[in-house]
Design a protein around this nucleic acid. Structure first.
Lengths: 153, 153
DNA sequence: TATGAAAGACCGCTCCC
DNA sequence: GGGAGCGGTCTTTCATA
């Protein structure tokens, strides 16, 4: 992990291509950048060891799986020191895909996906607002997500 | 895209494994589930055609790349009908990794990554608050992200 | 130390049962 | 859904500057 590895233009090109499609053949990357496949391989290994590339995932379309509702929930705790316990409970809810400890209006900010508004309703009442450490919640429903991407370089 | 394809346990196992590691060999998936590699292949193709698997990405560690600051910004527009133009401008900012059209306190809700607080400051003043259609913004800085995952099945 | 070229192993794809 | 063969890709090794 250590210090930030200084990436160059070639690294940037490789990352951009692999973020777009993790299965891009090294030969293609090599041709696009005018280097040999071995060079691509060396660079990818370096990026992995630098901790920049953390893995490869397939991407799922939540809507195709029936998860039509995406929303953010701002959470206020009764006491800021309850943070750890609250997170542990939220972690047990598969619908929660992100949780952040934030400054600003809320103590914790989470992203949630459910199959329907009804399911969101039940989740909120039965599983989230019932967590002892939570004082109040505020829900922002995402009606559409026009931007969704990884950091660009 | 059409109707939701009904996935079974085998599909779920495959998806879970490939979300964890997109390079998991089909032979391994086959052995784990007591079926043949060809069956895995058929299932993966089916999931792709159903639009459930949308692709494969490498995952980047923003911090290893020097992007240490993650925050959410709630945006209120002067007029809700300016939505499209505001999104178009936000789309031009590489630091913006998500944008949602939301109900609740804000019209638009975005996720942003910068290398430093200073960079966030500049981004806010010079590139975001300077967008004509935007009336006001509210920033929530993420101090840590204890949960970060795709939907589980 | 980083690159270029080539050979080997592995995986995924396609046929047929 | 299972099994075998082909093609392609990744990986490794060696040579080079």
């Amino acid at each position: 992990m250590a210090a930030h590895y200084q990436i160059d233009d070639l690294d940037r090109q490789i990352l951009a291509a692999l973020v777009d499609n993790a299965r891009t053949p090294y030969a293609e990357l090599a041709k696009l950048n005018g280097v040999s496949p071995a060079t691509i391989h060396v660079r990818v290994e370096k990026l992995k060891q630098a901790g920049i590339i953390t893995g490869a995932q397939i991407t799922l379309d939540p809507q195709a799986l029936g998860f039509d509702v995406c929303c953010f929930i701002g959470i206020n705790l009764k006491s800021a020191k309850d943070y750890g316990r609250a997170i542990a409970q939220l972690n047990g809810l598969p619908e929660v895909t992100e949780a952040h400890y934030t400054t600003g209006h809320y103590n914790i900010f989470i992203k949630v996906r459910t199959r329907s508004i009804e399911e969101l309703h039940q989740l909120l009442i039965n599983r989230i607002q019932s967590i002892d450490e939570i004082q109040s919640t505020e829900t922002l429903i995402s009606l559409s997500s026009p931007i969704q991407r990884q950091i660009s370089l």
